[in-house]
Amino acid sequence: MSTAGRAVAVKASARPATRRRLRNRDWVWGYAMIAPLVLGLGVFYLWPVVQSVYYSFTEWTLFGDATWVGLRNYEQLLTDPANARALRNTFVYGGLSLLGIPLSIAVAALLGTRGLRLVSLYRTLYFLPVVTMPAAVAMIWTWLYNGDYGLVNYLLSLVGIHGTSWIAEPSTALYALVAVGIWTQIGYNAVIFMAGLQSIPSHLYEAASIDGAGRARQFFRITLPLLSPSIFFVSVLSVINGLQMFDLVYLMLRRGNPAREDTQTVVSLFFSRAFEEGAKGYAAAMAVVLMLITLVLTVIQFRVQKRWVHYA
């Protein structure tokens, strides 16, 4: 689950209307009760951001000494073609993962059908990929995608298609991974959409029925507009998750895979630079750039939302 996505959630609720009297002893207790958390988040999260930004202007020796190199890491970021490729892949991944949204809405809408039985069974089945360990998911799909013995190619052969080695082929690997990503997210998104659908008042549909609006018309005129806040939330989350793509890339494109070079994402590249090659200053610069990109994309999404999201 993405952290930045939750930030979207956070904005809405500042400043509670507390109606209690101010008491002096509250001060001490208040500080004491937040102290462990503030300390932990400060040491492990807030201060590290400052440090990372500093590191992005340094270069590290083998012994872990950092020397100031100014903007050199950032210059290198621009010249290394691996970065441009990883960035492109990351955008493709983030963008294509939006394709899962219509599927999730369809699942949620169908599960919300009045009088439908077996809803909880369906929900459990759609949710299995969400709760399964990504490391296990990666293994299962690596096997399913196997060029010679994989189930995917066997099923394709039944309809006369000769499949390839999906994740060992530079032209297909990225899209094969996107498909797995969507597969793991449909259940999660559908749960959010189901909650959104339940909050739509049923009298709207009744009124529409009386006015003679059919099922399809009701869906496009009532359901979709009123679901738009959920759609917005899920799309921000999908893009951020896409930008954070790591587990599947790391596990499905192992060393020796011919598609590995061409299919790296920003985060997988960050991981190998920082923790496999020890180029921590350079990797910190990558992280800073990723933060800026995430920020810009989120701001754009918030700007554009005003045109299509209806808050009831």
Partner: peptide, 13 residues
């Protein structure tokens, strides 16, 4: 504000 920052900025420190 921690929620808005990609995890990679925490990892090295």
């Amino acid at each position: 504000s921690v929620l808005m920052v990609p995890g990679q900025l925490f990892l090295i420190p």
